[in-house]
Each structure stands twice: as structure tokens, then as C-alpha cells.
Design a protein around this nucleic acid. Sequence first.
RNA 1: GGCGCAUUCGUCUAGUGGUUAGGACGCUGCCCUUUCAAGGCAGAGAUCACGGGUUCGAGCCCCGUAUGCGCUGCCA
Length: 511
Amino acid sequence: MSNVPNSSAAPVVRTRFAPSPTGEMHIGGFRTVFYSWLLARKYNGQFILRIEDTDQVRSKERVIDNLIEGFNWLSLNFDEGPAISGQYGPYYQSDRLGIYAHYAAQVLEKGHVYPCFCSEERLDTLRQEQQKRGLATTGYDRKCRNLPEKEAAQRMADGEPFVLRLKVPLNGFTVLQDALRGEMKFNNALLEDSVMIKSDGYPTYHFASIIDDHLMKISHILRGDDWLPSFPLHGLLYTYLGWEMPVIAHVPNVLGDDGKKLSKRHGAEPVLLYKGRGYLPEAILNFLALLGWAYDEQSEIFTVDELIDKFSLERVHTSPAKFDTTRLLWMNGIYIRKLSIEELVKNVLPFLEAPEADGGLPDSVARPLDRAYLRSFIHLDQERMKTFADAAFLTAFFFVDDLEYLPELLIDKKIDAAGALCALHMAYNALTGLATWDHDSIEQALRNVAAEMGVKAGPVFMGVRVAVTGRKETPPLMETMLVLGRERCLRRINIAIQRLETIQVSAETAQ
RNA sequence: GGCGCAUUCGUCUAGUGGUUAGGACGCUGCCCUUUCAAGGCAGAGAUCACGGGUUCGAGCCCCGUAUGCGCUGCCA
């Protein structure tokens, strides 16, 4: 970086998402990432993807496809990262080993870090003993901290395995700024000589992330507040390296229903799972944004652009929030209702065409579906859907040939079996004789039936509704019948009449 | 055990020393209405975790306590 003329201008905002490839990205951690993205976009900065694959044992293959797919679904883009390139790469930490080695040598020379030759077995038994004795302070006993320089150098040269530990101050305080909480004071006496470089030569998170954040010119770091305990370690590292610390905000974790941190092990679900469940990305984002952040007293529905405009770190909470699925459902419904018919059809189609076992329409319905037909009625279900996964159940009777339902449903509470049967008969005749099959004609015909029978229209409507759809809850009757067409309606009413008759017969014989 | 963070209706939250503690989800009732939704209206629901201070006055400031969560690895 050369001396740019506008060096006095506000520094570029660069934020990052730095996952370890040990599993899928889940919804809990994602909220924090979203805030990072918002920040970068708000200030026209950059959002960087960096893969922290420094755990050779646990890191899976270099699969970031799934991760990228999740971000794509939500329309969140990276400016730099693996497979995207960028001038601050490489973006896999395992490709940056040389860089870490360089800085490790530097801090080793300065004496901020020391080699430790203790075996994992020794550390294990040490920990066990400390626990057994109920010691106030646990952790590494600093056995190797004061090894004579010569001896340490000799053992390293001899090829004895070692790790590099941070030589933390034994007293005093480390004072740091958290963007959300302000000044934080940590007692150095309580700190540990944490491992910076493992015996396999790989850095730990503490070491690698700080070097990369600096080299990649990250300006704001947002991370879970489970990192708070190691915050002083990082502060120390920055001073040892002689670097300025970026703005760091420890954002509270998202909690599950039980109040425990959402994690891979604990109820956290991959973001993409919500796609499969029929949620809209806009709804997820809007909902997540409000989990730990609020703009004002009453605003709740924000487009992504509005969030970019209005988001600010100052209004991010320090207290954790529970992930309330019910509220998400409500918000998803709001976004579904905003969709155009074309968008609705597009979204709903894959859910309807899915196999029955996966929640799609009955397998008896031929695929692919008739798009034009779907388009003709899907608006009737738009305000009844909380997720697209509801569509199959809601629309089944528009597609299926044979309705399955309990004949008892045909008898409304406000009418008896005989009345219900009579109404269906009369409705059948009236509808057959209709000059035109339109909304008002159908309604008038059915109202006439009720009038002739001397009953209210409700029970008549309900009988026809069940006959024609097999359900008691449906979109408005006339609109539904219009979609189904006269022929199908009459056939279904006819079948309903037969079913009612068999009930009556069996009821009579039972007497 | 040690250390840290947090604490306003069941849930998400507004609130930055003086408010009848506001909104939303959910819940209940009513309206609309051919059912269900959606929408509208109304209601129940918070002694602001508890106890001390500071102050004329505290949800807001300070100190304790309790509870919850997190960290306490050659994982991140």
C-alpha cells in the first residue's frame, strides 16, 4: 500500500466471515455474520471470506460449496475469498503457514513466546490433578516457561516436538475496548500461556486470526461473545506484534428455546435447511437482523437495503436472544403475501412437485404441474401460507382426482344429516341448471337452496365446500368452485351425496 | 471450582434520571364474513431478577446477591 493522497479520509471498512470448515454454516452463528456483512455494505467496504482450516484433525475437505450456496441463497456476496480471488490471499489458512511461521519466529526472538516440550499426556494428567484438588487456577503450570535459552534451543534443534506458548504477563491488567461494552479490564494473573503454534507447525486460532486480520486489513471484527475470555490474549498479541487493533465487537450468541447457545451440537440448523422448509431469504434476514438489534420503537419490517442503511453497531445488544420460530413463521407469512403471483408460482412449484413423502402433492398427481393452472388460483392460498411447504396441503384438492374425507364432515353443526343430504341434492340440481358458471350465479343458486329449505346459507355453503374440496377450511367457496369448474364440482357433489346416503343407511340399520 | 458476560410482559424488543413502562409475535374476545386465513379493534400479560445505596426523584448510575449462559484444549 503506497501513501495514498486521501489517507486522511475515513478508512475502508473491511469485515470478514472466518469459519472453520468443520460443519455446515448454521443459523445461530449466521446472525453475527450478517451483521458483519451489513457493516461492510453500509460503508461501501468489503466483505471477505477466509477459511480457518488450521485444525488438521477436524477440518473436512475444502468444501465451501455448501457455504457459498447458503450465502447465494440469501443474496449475500463476498468481495474476496477462495475461488473469488482478491489481493490479500490466499484465503485458506492452511495455505498461509509460511506467513505464520515468519511471525512466530519474530515473537519468539523477542521473547513473547516460548517453546514448550510438555507432552499431551503430561498436560492431561496435570489437568486431572488440578481438578481433583479443586484448584482455583487450572491450566498449564508453565513448566517450560523458564527453560534456559540454550537448553530450549538445543532441544528444538534436536527435533524434539514442541509448541509455542504465549508468555503472558504475570501481573497487571490488560485494558481493551469492546465496541459494544466499552472499556474492559482483564487481570493478567488469570491469563494462560496459551498455545500459539501447535506441534504440527499449524497456528491456533488466536495466532492465525490476528495475523490474517491485520494482513487482510480487516477494520471491524464481529464475533460471538464466547470469545470474550480470550480477548485479553488477543490484545496482548496485537501489542507484541506492534499492530493496531481493529474495532472488535463481541456479539451475544443466539440461544435455542431452552436458553442454551445454538451450536452444531445443540439445535442449530444449517441455513439452507430453511430454504427446504419454504422460508424466504428476505424473511430470514429480516428476522435475524432483529435478533439482537432494533432500529426504533416500532419498525419491524425492513428490506435488506433498509437494513444496510439503518444498521449500526451502537444499537446491537449485549444480551443474548432466543430464536423464536413462531415469530419467524409470522414474518415469513408477511413476505409471502408481498410476492407477485409469478414469484409465488416460482417459489411454490418445487414444493408441490416434490415427492409426496417429502411433503409434496400426492404422487398420484402427474408432474410436471400445469403452471398456468397453478397461476390461476395460487393467489387464493397466498394469505393462508406461512411457508411454501404449506402449499401442498393447501392446494391438494385442486390437483387430486379423488377426495378423501370423512363423510361426517359434510354435515354442518347447524343442520342434520337429512338436511345436509337434501341441500346437496338441491345444490346439484341448481348448479346443473345454471346458465353461466360465474361467481354470482353460483352464490345465488346456493343461497336460493338455503332459502327454499328455510335454513341459513352457512350450512349449505359448508356442505358444498366439503363436497367439493374435502375440507372445512378453504379459500372462498365461489372462487374455489370457479377454479375447479362445473364438471368437477358436480361430480364431487354427486360422490358426496352417495357417501352421505351410505352413512344414513348404516345409521338406520344400526337402530 | 475459577474467570467472564448477561438480566424490561411467555418470546423479540423500545426506553439512556421525572413515561399511565411503548411496540411486535403468541394468546383471548369482538368486528368483517360462506369456512379458514388475512385485516381491523379491544383485552389479558412486566411490583423493569432480588437487596442495598447515590439522588428531590432510578428500569436507567454504583455496590452486593441470585439466576442463566459462556470460557476454562496442541477446537475454533
